[in-house]
Design a protein around this nucleic acid. Sequence first.
RNA 1: GCGCCCGUAGCUCAGCUGGAUAGAGCAUUUGGCUUCGAACCAAAGGGUCGGAGGUUCGAAUCCUUCCGGGCGCACCA
Length: 675
Amino acid sequence: MFRTVQQTITTQLRSILKQQFDLEGQTVVIEQPPAIALGELATPLAFELAKRLRKAPRAIAQTLVDALRTAVATGSLPELTSVEVAGAGYLNFKLTRGTMVRAIAEDHHADIGGPGFRLVEHTSINPNKAAHIGHLRNAILGDTFQRLLRPDAFKSGYQVGVQNYIDNTGVQVADVVVGFIHLEQMSLLRVRELVTELLESNRRIDYFCWDLYARVSQWYTADPEQTGARKAIRLATLHALEEGENEIAEIADLIATSVLRRHLETMERLGIAYDFLPRESEILSLHFWEAARLLMMEKGVLYLETEGKNKGCYVMRRAGSTGDTPDGLTGPDEEAKVIVRSNGTVTYVGKDIAYHLWKFNLLPNRDFGYRQFHQYSTHTCWISAVAGEDPHPSFGHADAIYNVIDSRQNDPQNNVVQALRGMGYTEAADRYTHFSYEMVALTPRCAMDLGYTVSDEDQKRSYLEVSGRKGFGVKADDLIDRLIAAALAEVDQRHPELGADERAGIARQIAVGALRFFMLRFTRNTVIAFDFHDALSFEGETGPYIQYAVVRAANILRKANSDVAEALRDLTQLPVPRLSLLLDSDEGTSLWETWLLASRLTTVIEQAIATSEPAHLARFAFQLAQQFNNFYHRHHVLHETDPDRRTLLLATAAVAQRELTRTLGLLGIDVPPVM
RNA sequence: GCGCCCGUAGCUCAGCUGGAUAGAGCAUUUGGCUUCGAACCAAAGGGUCGGAGGUUCGAAUCCUUCCGGGCGCACCA
């Protein structure tokens, strides 16, 4: 509703600017005044116009106010009670509280959504080890963003596909395969047995690989005399994976698929699901790159270098490079990015360009085969295959894409965008969003608590980068397990009357709420220095704080023998003047502030989408919960004797519950029945 | 050396496309449970927004420069 009023005022001001000053296309900023006594909305528009119109801001403001007052008098701005000039030339708007509250109670809100298919890609963990806290940030950001876009009961939304890219033929998988074959001396048969053993004894194969991967990484360079030979094994293994159709590749596929299934399990614990799992193995065997190469040559972005250090390679000019050497003479562009090596193999960026052409449906005559891989309670997750099954969905026709990838991949991501731009696909390049975020690191203190040795030098740093190669980090499932245990201890103490299953379920909801909120409360380009003390906290600015507020609201409604829908319906039966009277008092103002804040949800969602920043929504959830808790202490709903005031108080609890539940839903956080 | 990001209260972070008196959480001190359950609320202290210039009616926000920190800059993925 907040958004609706903002739009109405903006439209009115634009038409006044046109009539009075013959101005068009002026951006109108609508903000909130520092104190509600000044009004609910304000605009500094007169300041911006002062120079262009060569008039004093107050004079301009007065002209605008006069015109707006006419509009208010004729009833074209029913939500407005008054407009005033304040300070040096601010325009302050006061809203008709009764009208607004009734509209909010009736759930009037601007819709969000539009045409076009949006492809969100997140998680994309190398399937050779357990997921760690850095991967959790990625998946939680991506999943939350996907929820903001997707159609649901609150909004029309956009059509969305969620992908998790699987690099099942890369060096990281090759490394762990080297570990199985050369350190563990295992055959394909033995690896198959091991996978079964682990599954049957309920042990996590991704944990097994976590340790093995760290061991292999050390093994390569452990013996200086062997280093050359061992690196050769690594390279040969990688080539065997890329080739396919051999025993080494079969081991790799077995491991990668088993680890992938574990990753899906881990993410499902947090309510995260996928629609499609495109794999590198199919990008190779279906020859995506061949099609992309032809297209890039045809468009002239790829050329054979004949001189200099990159002689014999196919290279792509970088952004901003003219191709001229610094001395102005024509020569080889040494800054160009190598796409095809002199030995004829394609680099990672080359494959990524091909993959992204596919995403935008720009790769002629190429698509994945699709096979069903995993069944969620709501839908099927598909995986790429050489020969797929029919019928199947398709995903390679995006109008916009969002790649949730950490900021360290900034350059490679830019390379792909530049390739698209260079090929003339400017629209695709414009609608390519690198949803970049900073890493999750460990505080030195946290690392030491976990038993890692930390050098004196590292102890002085504010955070330490996690490393899968070194086996240094906090595994996702370990963190989730610890959160659940901590939550369960609280629930057991508070609700001994509940059954064990019910307590466990509530503990799980609280743990997920704490974890998801923890990852979402920081803006994307903030490095998270992870610490168990903060991550395991359920007090203050946390997910459980918000969940607790909703539970309290629900308790009030339950004890009043009402529910959200009924309490809000009862409110709409009150005459608007009576409602305004209740809300205009000092005491009413604090109630009104709760309604006003609650009505901002649409605005916040739009802002979060526009800036690709889910943290805005997380902060909104906390603010609203804080506002509600404040209300909770100030007003004893069930003790209220005046029937109209009681109706208003009950409806205030109801609107807080409604909007908080919605917001938490978008953040992927459930509301427990009790806490 | 080049590119990107960051520097705001003791600590961890917000601060929307420049707008009115820079805000939260944690920690510290103090007060509030026979109440709609205290995973809560209220109050207090705590700031030259890294430094210096500049643009502007107005700068934490934009520009320049310096200082301090992080991450990238392969014929790896």
